[in-house]
Amino acid sequence: MKVIVDQDACTGSGQCVLIAPGVFDQRDEDGIVTLLHDTPEPGLQEDVREAARICPALAITLTTS
């Protein structure tokens, strides 16, 4: 799994950080998502899928490569 975030689309809701803090973080100045790991370990992948699913801005994309 590869994770891609669209910082321009992100609204800073922080749901991704709450669900998968080992993969996502937020910039201090504006709350926009930052990606800590673009290829999460298998144990984190279900949380990352959930974070992408509930992102209100649809700013998280997952690929299989």
Rank of each mutant, 00 (worst) to 15 (best):
I4E: 15
L62V: 01
Q26E: 13
G31Y: 05
E50I: 03
A51H: 11
P42D: 12
V17K: 11
D47I: 01
G31C: 03
I54W: 11
D6A: 10
D30V: 01
V48S: 10
C16S: 09
P21D: 04
G12E: 13
Q7R: 15
P42C: 00
L62R: 05
A59Y: 01
P42Y: 05
D25N: 09
A52K: 10
I54V: 15
T39E: 07
L44G: 03
L44P: 02
V17T: 10
G22T: 11
T64P: 02
R27G: 00
G22A: 14
D6F: 12
R53H: 05
G43N: 14
E50V: 04
T61W: 03
V33E: 15
G31S: 05
G14P: 14
G14H: 01
S13E: 14
G12D: 11
T64A: 04
E46K: 15
V5G: 05
P40H: 01
T39S: 03
A52P: 13
L58S: 15
D8H: 04
R49N: 12
L62W: 03
E46M: 13
L18Y: 05
A20N: 08
A51N: 12
D6L: 07
R49A: 03
P21I: 01
A9N: 07
V17I: 07
G31F: 07
Q7F: 02
G14V: 01
R53G: 00
T61A: 12
E46S: 15
A57W: 02
Q7T: 13
H37Y: 06
F24I: 07
V33G: 08
C16G: 08
G31E: 15
H37C: 10
T63Y: 00
L58N: 15
P56V: 03
C16I: 06
C10M: 02
G14R: 04
C55G: 07
K2V: 06
G43D: 13
H37E: 15
D30N: 15
G22H: 13
P42V: 04
E29T: 14
E46V: 11
G31A: 09
F24A: 02
G31L: 06
V48H: 12
F24K: 12
E50T: 12
E41H: 06
D25H: 09
E50W: 04
K2R: 15
C10V: 05
P40T: 04
T34Q: 12
Q45T: 02
F24C: 11
K2Y: 01
T11E: 14
L62G: 09
V5S: 03
L35G: 12
Q7I: 07
I54N: 09
D38T: 06
T61L: 02
Q15I: 00
A57C: 01
Q26T: 11
G22V: 09
Q15L: 13
H37Q: 14
L35S: 08
D25Q: 07
T63R: 09
T61N: 09
I32S: 07
P21F: 00
D25E: 09
D28S: 13
M1Q: 06
E29F: 06
I32G: 08
T63H: 03
D25V: 03
P40L: 02
C55A: 10
V33L: 15
R53T: 02
F24Q: 10
C10N: 11
I60D: 14
R49H: 10
V5H: 01
P21H: 03
S13T: 15
Q7A: 09
T64Q: 14
V48A: 11
S65L: 01
T61R: 08
G12S: 05
M1C: 10
G31R: 08
V48F: 06
